[in-house]
């Protein structure tokens, strides 16, 4: 009954052409996280949950469901199957194109409804603090003469940091051995324990060990420095980490963090969530989250977001083809 009413209301809104957010959620909203609890996507979802509930942005409760199986593939299948359900959201990272390309999974983000891009995440080249490397150049020189090859490690096979490791090999003409662990956390500990030579973790994944003096950042895989100038470890801030291209390592890579809905939802439903996320990114909780994780604020929605996705996907396809990560 209520649903029929809203469908009619939505239809009326379409006919009259007004863009007023006529739709509102009628039951709890599920945010599906394609990663395990505690990971960076999970933290983002829980921050969003906190921001919504503290500021009373939505009347319905927010539920977070972790579906980490198959590198997020299962979560994407779920969204694929839920076409038309306006009470589901999925957090997204580059995995939204990488997992289907690497596993031949029959899903495509074009079948989903893009809501908003919230931020971009940087990657940093980290080494164990006891090792003599001070700059990216030191590391590359050492890698050139190392036998067996130096070990890097990270999130998992054919994932973002594996791609970065291979990209570095190609750009610098070196050979590295990438060891896939089950996430950035273990990779950080393995680096602190000296079991690997370097990792390419996100700032948030490595900050604890950086502050404790067990790992050291060499450079950030971006064209410009990060913007956060608060002191983190000793007298270093995120902004003090030099960009890799400045150190002769011409590798840049960032990962999007965004939100999608299932396909076949109405324009009003999509608009409701776009507005919601516009409000969320203005909350103090969200700003604190960005700073804590040294994320690059980059809000996009609508055609702007879609254009970004298309370009980013093409770039990933290119990088993954060169790295031999595409399933055949």
């Amino acid at each position: 009954m209520r649903r029929a009413f809203w469908t009619m209301a939505a239809a009326a809104a379409v006919i009259s052409g007004t863009a007023a957010a006529a739709w509102e959620p009628s039951r709890p909203i599920e945010i599906i996280v394609p990663f395990p609890p505690g990971g960076s996507s999970d933290q983002m979802a829980r921050t969003i949950q906190a921001a919504i509930q503290k500021n009373n942005l939505v009347k319905q409760p927010i539920i977070i469901l972790n579906k980490p199986a198959a590198a997020g593939g299962e979560a994407m299948m779920e969204i694929q199957k839920s076409a038309g359900d306006p009470h589901k959201l999925i957090t997204t990272s580059s995995g939204i194109y990488m997992t289907p390309l690497a596993t031949k999974l029959p899903v495509n983000w074009r079948d989903f409804t893009p809501v908003a891009m919230l931020a971009q995440d940087d990657f940093v080249l980290w080494v164990n603090a006891q090792k003599p490397y001070r700059t990216a150049k030191d590391f590359i020189e050492a890698a050139k003469s190392a036998s067996p090859p130096l070990k890097t490690g990270g999130n998992g096979s054919k994932r973002e940091d594996n791609l970065l490791s291979v990209y570095m090999e190609q750009q610098a003409g070196i050979k590295l051995t990438y060891i896939p662990y089950q996430g950035g956390g273990p990779a950080s500990v393995q680096l602190a324990g000296g079991h690997i030579e370097a990792n390419m973790n996100n700032p948030a994944e490595e900050v604890a060990n950086w502050r404790a003096g067990s790992s050291r950042p060499l450079c950030v895989f971006a064209n410009k420095r990060m913007s956060y100038t608060a002191k983190i470890a000793g007298d270093m801030s995120w902004a003090d980490i030099p960009p890799c291209p400045e150190q002769g390592l011409n590798v840049t890579y960032q990962m999007l963090r965004g939100m999608f809905m299932p396909g076949k939802v109405t324009a009003e439903q999509q608009l409701f969530y776009v507005d919601l996320f516009k409000k969320i990114v203005e909350t103090p909780e969200w700003k604190e989250y960005l700073e804590r994780n040294a994320l690059v604020p980059d809000f996009r929605s609508g055609p702007d977001f879609v254009k970004f996705l298309e370009e980013d996907e093409a770039r990933h396809k290119d990088l993954m083809t060169k790295a031999g990560f595409i399933a055949n």
Partner: peptide, 22 residues
């Protein structure tokens, strides 16, 4: 069964998406 962490490939799923999660 499911995604192999080391190679990043699916194993023994026989093309069934239900088996993907192991």
């Amino acid at each position: 069964v499911g995604l192999d962490t080391i190679s990043g490939d699916l194993r023994m799923t026989f093309g069934q998406t239900e088996l993907m999660k192991g």
